[in-house]
Write a protein that binds this DNA or RNA. Sequence first.
DNA 1: TTGTGTGCAAACGATTTGCAAGTGT
DNA 2: ACACTTGCAAATCGTTTGCACACAA
Lengths: 147, 147
Amino acid sequence: MKHETIRRSFEEFLKKKKLRLTRQRDEVFELAFETHEHFTAETFLGWLTERDSGVSRATVYRTLALLVEGGFLDLLDVGTGEAWYEHVLGHQHHDHLICTGCGRIEEFREPRIEALQEEVATKYGFVLKDHDLRLMGLCKSCSRKAS
Amino acid sequence: MKHETIRRSFEEFLKKKKLRLTRQRDEVFELAFETHEHFTAETFLGWLTERDSGVSRATVYRTLALLVEGGFLDLLDVGTGEAWYEHVLGHQHHDHLICTGCGRIEEFREPRIEALQEEVATKYGFVLKDHDLRLMGLCKSCSRKAS
DNA sequence: TTGTGTGCAAACGATTTGCAAGTGT
DNA sequence: ACACTTGCAAATCGTTTGCACACAA
């Protein structure tokens, strides 16, 4: 998906919700899709501040939440206390491998796991809405250091 | 495993770490193994307060962390912000199904998923230490209500 | 006795909120 | 104009910590 396309769908989203496209929302949106890393709200605020975007902390939190609501960002719980975000551009659904040594996050997809999840949910009478699978361990270079 | 057994292993654990068996630690330990529900620190504090245990909030947090460290409690991240605990008595490793309607938590085990997790980790050069799989959805009675 | 453990209240870190002032449409 | 938005600072929530006192070993 091209940037233009997703940009337009953001504007659609705002219109549909009767929200305004302000300078701040614009800055946040653009930066969110410029980066290809996972980030926290505070990191993100730092980036904005560096480039003198003039967007306040409160607005960063409010706008990131908005982007999650609209499905432009995924919220990701790394287990460190803060919320992590990642944009969805070109990302299909995936789960995460988290290195407890260096904090690095890898993405993977494993349809066979997904299928088994459905099977489990059905067995327990649940209608599955979402899932979250985190694999924690040491990445190659960290496990080399550790041994 | 009988209560007596796990109780003794708790005392062992304290001895090994040169920690003292205080009245407060005793209260917390006993209550933690008395309940068969998942609980948060604040809920737990509430229970203790009801029975006039005279254990302070600070000590509850400190002791729950201690019990996790010793492997007597499992820490569980339900995605609601607070930490949830569950005792390990007779619980083998398992993952969770979380009802987003009523908050109910079901446990399940699925060795085939575990096997695939190892496979994924290996593929990415990770040495797996732990994992966390949460399936979110509606339980039978909540999905009935919803429809 | 002596090093641990405890309670209290203040400190914390991430996030949210009320409110008065600013701004898209 | 007028409702939506913002920035600010204060408020929240769960959890942690410093410190003087209490207490297991």
